[in-house]
Nucleic acid binder design. Structure first.
Lengths: 346, 346
DNA sequence: CTGAAAGCGCTTACAG
DNA sequence: CTGAAAGCGCTTACAG
């Protein structure tokens, strides 16, 4: 006897079957009708079954349905950070919003893997070696994961999952929905060119991950062959007067900053030299602000439709779950361009 | 063959058992150790089992565990509104934050019932007659539920759940964690008395639910026998000059507003008469602001430790789940008092 | 200390 | 059109 039924025995399929004078297979066929079912039910029998279900207050046991091979209609959501950020202006939050909306539309419940503690700062997919994800039909992975080992291991299990953000691993293919930084940055460069800029510099994170590669690829696109392009991967705090002098000596008139931290550091150092944006130099941010949108309001920048991406991740995952033979699916999400006030024509 | 294992058969208990040279019962005992288990495992066997689990990358199938009567370590969260509010300053959000923290501490995953659409404005626990909650060990119900029928029905199933906010139904007892409005309001009245006030009025929602009863009970506490107390349940938009005149005619010097809408409406109408708070009359809000905290900053008011309540709800639920015979548990959460600027001594 | 077996409530070939 | 039976992967009395 299971714990939850101690009070009153659950009404099961066989109760309904008995009352309707049919077998449980017929009841099953009635509650979950499928296209090419091996079993067909007569009108009359179905009527009796439905009557019995109502009479007995029968509700199918989702757990049993799952075990027997039915779909669970549960999507796992794994975030490397807290799911409910105490800073509610969190960068990842809009993705969750989109995920919930997608789940609603597709009739899925959402399972948040909160059981693996955040003790050492980040969660792991395999806390103490076990993987709780199996409960769900598939999972969406969210957050700036560095953990390629985890990813590879999960990939090897054959468990369906989709990451938000491009992820590449050796010896495996991952499904993802990612911001199309490449085209977005290429587009920014083209705009700058149109505005008269001829020498540009991309500054960004020292740690080069997929998203940084994407931005850089868009930056050095062959269509920009006639431009004078520089790339410097430098920590924001290392931007100083000497660095800025070198910038001007190279004739750079616009800086593309991978992060807001870079843009802000640059502005501060410029100010120390009595210079300002965009009068002395233009700046474009190649990312959405990490926190409050308002914070980045005045910057000319790229915008990421995060809610839409969340929704798309759900759709992508469900497609994979429903068609297991399917190849990994990769979706590049087109990004927006926000004019702002920090890019000026020459 | 279930859909999700088409690629590679799932590693099961029997695989582990075979490799470790024991029966599945032993493996089961190892992965879910319980106090007075009928089956005990030798150190040696346990070591072999653990090694095999790691080797094979075994993870128990929670669905099967559930069916067989084991614990799932999944807490359902049912919200009548969207779980991820697009307005992130949502009143209910901090509860979720606390719930996540509680889940982490107790090693629980969180299942959000997002599958029942929000189409007709609110979710139902029993969408099209079925109840998906059974997947979880128990559930936390969040949001200003009016749906006593749903609640009664859920209660009758014997499924363990805890509501946030006091809920009473006929013919059943519900476990809840609720703000202790009664004591908080009684305390407010006492403070007002100390400050010289002798005539007070409680204004609030016309629809009297549990929380309104609680506030009212604290208001008319027998210890306040010597005071002149009035209660008016009136829609905020019906507060007008005539109503305010009556207020002063009754000698009322402080108004306790159940909602911020009431407080704000009152202030607006007072202003129209050239009167102000707290110079002409004092006001205390008997609730946390529904949205942004900042919005209510200046008001003298009650504060609700929402995160703490979320965490407590998880603890309460787990206690019930672990000890099924347990009586419903009711926790009154002590509230805070924020001085603000709208209450003045006479 | 450990194994063989029943059972949780479904679904799905396989027979009629 | 419908039934009997196997099986999903576990847990838990019941025997040894």
């Amino acid at each position: 006897m299971t714990i939850r039924h101690r009070r009153s025995r659950r009404v099961t399929q066989s109760d309904v079957a008995a009352m309707a004078g049919v077998s449980t297979a017929v009841v099953s066929a009635v509650i979950s009708p499928k296209p090419n079912k091996t079993i067909r039910v007569g009108e009359d029998a179905e009527k009796r079954v439905r009557a019995a279900m109502v009479e007995l207050g029968y509700a199918p046991d989702v757990v049993a349905q799952s075990l027997a091979g039915g779909q669970r209609n549960i999507i796992g959501v794994f975030t490397y950070e807290a799911v409910f950020p105490s800073d509610r202006r969190n960068f990842f939050y809009p993705f969750l919003l989109g995920i919930e909306r997608g789940a609603m539309k597709l009739g899925q419940d959402l399972l948040l893997f909160t059981s693996s503690t955040l003790e050492k700062g980040r969660r792991s997919i395999f806390p103490k070696g076990t993987n709780r994800m199996g409960i769900a039909d598939g999972a969406i992975l969210l957050g700036a994961s560095q953990d390629k080992d985890d990813l590879k291991r999960l990939c090897d299990t054959g468990f369906p999952f989709v990451t938000i953000g491009r992820r590449e691993i050796e010896g495996g293919q991952i499904s993802w929905v990612a911001p199309d930084y490449e085209n977005a940055v290429s587009d920014v460069v083209a705009r700058c060119r149109t505005m008269g800029h001829r020498a540009m510099m991309l500054i960004g994170e020292e740690d080069v991950r997929e998203q940084n590669q994407d931005r850089e690829r868009g930056f050095v696109d062959r269509e920009h062959g006639d431009l004078n392009l520089f790339v410097d991967r430098i920590a924001p705090e290392r931007i100083n007067p000497a660095w800025i002098r070198a910038l001007f000596e190279n004739g750079v008139t616009v800086v593309l900053a991978e992060t807001f931290a870079h843009a802000v550091a640059l502005e501060r150092e410029l100010a120390a030299l009595g210079l300002s944006i965009p009068d002395d130099i233009s700046v474009v941010a190649l990312a959405a602000p990490l926190f409050d949108e308002a914070e980045g309001e005045r910057w000319t920048r790229i915008s990421i439709p995060r809610e839409e991406m969340g929704e798309r991740a759900v759709e992508t995952l469900i497609a994979i779950v429903r068609e297991p033979g399917k190849m990994p699916d990769n979706i590049m999400q087109p990004l927006g361009y926000v004019p702002g006030e920090t890019l000026k024509a020459i």
